[in-house]
């Protein structure tokens, strides 16, 4: 990642939060889930399977420190000592490099479990579009994965693909969504799937006199179609929920949802903590099964 600070990715605020209704001292098991993603990292602290606190921040240049920082940030919101933790599960792109984790579990499993908690047991399809991948997951009422498909090979449709276009057009990533609707007429999608070829296609469109907004609209549409093609391959069963950074880009989401033909579920929780919530829940399940840390 090289620590290029000029990159302003999805504007989500680094935040931590503590649940005022929970006293950690009464909890039997304190479990922690840490999701180190390519762009952001989250730590969720759960008390007997309920969210007690969390911290969400930008991923740094290395996974171990990103994990430590996210956990420290979550703990900062509480009065709980860090060593109270009974079990810790790492997930996400950097999951094998979470130093305090007792084990790692894939983001597929954690996202399904986390979405089940955050959105409720009705959720059957979870779409997660992150900085470097697209995940489509079907799960049952318990949040167990029944079908999944992940694409982390190709940048098309991912946050990185959007970022390449924001750079090309000189439009801040935060404005992409709104600017893409500043067109008189919705253009056809950029035809190339490959980001490299889409980029040269876009350069051609600009030379032909297209406005940057129009090119953005054409690319957001291409992103939506790309994401849809991944989801469609797996199949969509209602209820449908979206997690990950792309959920916050209306330029893509408002073009994607009509293709899917369903409404997105809503939640009061920050959808970016879904993976870490799932990880902490797995930790809780393992503790309950007597498979927690040996004391």
């Amino acid at each position: 990642m090289g620590g290029e600070e000029k990159r302003e990715f999805w504007r989500w605020t680094e935040s931590n939060w503590r649940n005022p209704d929970i006293d950690w001292k009464n909890a039997r098991y304190i479990t922690v889930g840490i999701d180190v993603g390519s762009v952001s990292s989250q730590a969720v602290i759960m008390a007997d399977g309920q969210i007690f606190a969390y911290g969400s921040m930008r991923t740094g240049s290395d996974s171990p420190n990103s994990a430590r920082n996210a956990l420290a940030f979550a703990l900062e919101a509480t009065d709980m000592p860090g060593d109270r933790m009974d079990y810790c599960v790492g997930t996400g792109y950097g999951r094998v490099n979470v130093p305090m984790a007792d084990r790692s579990i894939t983001e597929i499993a954690c996202h399904a479990r986390g979405a089940n908690f955050i959105y409720g047991p009705q959720v059957r399809t979870v779409l997660d579009v992150g900085g470097q991948d697209i995940k489509a997951i079907q799960c049952d009422e318990k949040g167990k994965v029944t079908n999944f498909l992940m694409n982390d090979k190709c940048a098309a449709g991912t946050g990185r693909g959007m970022e390449v276009f924001a750079d090309l057009l000189g439009v801040s990533i935060n404005e992409v969504g709104d600017r893409s609707f500043q067109v008189d007429e919705e253009p056809e999608a950029v035809a190339s799937t490959c980001v490299v070829y889409a980029k040269s296609e876009a350069t051609g469109l600009l030379r032909r006199g297209w406005s940057r907004e129009r090119v953005l609209a054409a690319y957001c549409r291409a992103m939506a179609e790309r994401i849809y093609s991944i989801v469609r391959r797996m199949g969509v069963i209602p209820e449908f929920a979206v997690t990950g950074g792309m959920a916050k880009n209306r330029g893509v989401m408002e073009r994607l949802m009509p293709l899917i033909g369903l409404k997105r579920m809503e939640t009061e929780w920050d959808t970016q903590i879904a993976g870490a919530v799932g990880a902490a829940l797995f930790g809780y399940a393992l503790c309950q099964k007597g498979k927690g840390r040996e004391k």
Binding site: F148, L149, M150, K153, C154, A156, T193
Partner: peptide
């Protein structure tokens, strides 16, 4: 479990 990818 589907492993693999889609690209252009």
């Amino acid at each position: 479990a589907s492993y693999g990818y889609g690209d252009g």
